[in-house]
Computed example of a mutant assay.
Amino acid sequence: MAVTAKQSSVPAPTAARSRRRSSLGARDRTFGFMLAVPAVALFLVVAVYPLVASIGTSLYDQSLIRPERRFVGLGNFVDVWPVFVDRLGNTLVFSTLATIFPLLIGVALAIFLNSRLRGRNILRGLLMLPWLLPGVVVSFLWAWIFNDSYGVINHILTQVGLPSVDFLGRPMTAMLSVVIAKTWNTFPWIMVVVLAVLQTLPREQLEAAALDGASRIQRFRHVSLPHLIGPVALVTMLEFIYNFGSFDMIFVMTGGGPGTSTMTLAVSLYQYAFTEFSLGRAAAMGVLWLGTLSLVCGAYFMINRKLES
């Protein structure tokens, strides 16, 4: 009987420890939930609510200059669809060119600065300056450079006997001018990313390739390039997504003109909302823009997952 009583009293401490562990687990979960509540609330206020409100506004004929609004269903989408298709073409042209040019310049400069060069640290710092300037400042700077009356480029052209060019007043040159300004502003961060990857390359592989008689081009192709493909692909997608929503540089330099040659989705949405005061059409343009950008982001995540695997 004494043995039986002793055996029955053994599980008591184990059950108590189990209850304490369960209580501590519940407290940890409650504490973690309380920590997440502010972040979730901020996300709902900053991201989810504006999105839902924009989708709701896109279904109404609503204006900034009159308080009432009228339900029109998909009428706003029908009205802005032809404009959206035209502006989407300009946006894709700008995003593509403003991604390719900085990529080429950034990669080339990163390879150049990765070599043993005197004063390369000073040169790296100087090349970072365009990235540190705000986009509006860069826009005014390049608008002055390309100005047809007192711009630096036209001054040089007239000094050598060539006619001046209205860079910002012609459709082809206006888009190219904005792309050049954007390229000058964004190539440094691509250069920094590629340079950081080059700095982490295994030196023993490069030295082994050099001992085997591989030229500098062969070493770059067979040793450096495989390490660069992943980071460069991700940087390219991120830069394209960012350029897809670029507004400040185009708006300051050309305002979407001449005509609609540089009118992107961002500038068009601004005109709907704050020039025509049509919030319904602006919201419809924004919803279509969001849908297109979601496809681009989906491609980015697919590429990222494939590179990680």
Score class of each variant (00 low, 15 high):
Leu195Val: 01
Ser115Trp: 15
Thr91Asn: 00
Ser224Lys: 13
Tyr60Asn: 06
Arg120Asn: 11
Ala110Gln: 12
Phe220His: 07
Arg87Val: 05
Thr200His: 14
Leu51Pro: 05
Phe140Cys: 02
Ser164Val: 08
Leu74Asp: 00
Val179Ala: 08
Pro38Glu: 14
Thr57Phe: 15
Leu24Gln: 03
Ser268Glu: 03
Cys297Gln: 01
Gly256Lys: 06
Gly56Gln: 11
Gly291Gln: 00
Arg21Asp: 02
Met175Lys: 09
Leu288Gly: 03
Asn243Thr: 10
Leu129Asp: 03
Pro258Glu: 00
Asp248Ala: 09
Ser23Asp: 00
Tyr242Val: 07
Val193Thr: 08
Gly257Val: 03
Leu127Glu: 11
Ser8Met: 14
Leu195Arg: 04
Trp289Tyr: 15
Leu123Glu: 05
Thr14Ser: 00
Asp61Leu: 04
Leu104Asn: 07
Val178Tyr: 05
Ile217Pro: 00
Ser58Gly: 06
Leu113Lys: 01
Phe33Val: 02
Lys306Tyr: 06
Ile190Ala: 10
Leu109Glu: 11
Ser58His: 12
Leu157Arg: 15
Val46Thr: 03
Val287His: 12
Met128Trp: 07
Thr158Ser: 13
Phe140Gln: 04
Phe84Pro: 01
Ser246Cys: 11
Phe43Cys: 11
Pro50Arg: 05
Thr275Gly: 04
Leu211Asn: 12
Ala5Phe: 15
Gly135Gln: 13
Gln205Pro: 12
Gln199Tyr: 14
Ser63Glu: 11
Ser246Val: 12
Leu35Asn: 10
Gly32Cys: 10
His222Pro: 02
Val197Ile: 05
Thr254Gly: 08
Gly259Val: 03
Arg124Glu: 05
Pro188Leu: 12
Thr99Met: 13
Phe187Gly: 06
Ala108Ser: 13
Phe140His: 04
Phe112Arg: 06
Asn154Ser: 09
Ala266Gln: 02
Leu132Ser: 03
Ile105Ala: 06
Leu127His: 07
Thr236Lys: 00
Pro11Asn: 04
Tyr60Pro: 06
Leu42Cys: 11
Asp212His: 05
Gln159Tyr: 15
Gly106Ala: 11
Gly298Ser: 07
Val107Thr: 12
Met175Ala: 01
Ala15Phe: 05
Ala36Gly: 13
Leu279Ser: 00
Leu206Tyr: 15
Val192Cys: 08
Leu129Thr: 10
Met249Gly: 02
Gly151Ala: 10
Leu290Ile: 03
Gly230Phe: 11
Ala284Cys: 13
Asn114Glu: 14
Tyr49Val: 08
Ala53Tyr: 15
Ser309Phe: 04
Tyr300Ser: 07
Gly25Ile: 08
His222Thr: 07
Ile145Arg: 08
Pro50Thr: 05
Arg219Ile: 06
Leu42Tyr: 14
Trp131Lys: 09
Gly291His: 01
Ser63Gly: 09
Ala36Ile: 11
Ser95Thr: 01
Leu88Gln: 09
Val287Lys: 10
Gly259Phe: 01
Gly255Ile: 06
Arg219Phe: 06
Phe94Met: 00
Arg17Leu: 15
Gln271Cys: 07
Phe112Trp: 14
Ile250Ser: 05
Glu276Ala: 09
Ala108Trp: 15
Gly135Pro: 14
Ser63Leu: 09
Pro50Ile: 07
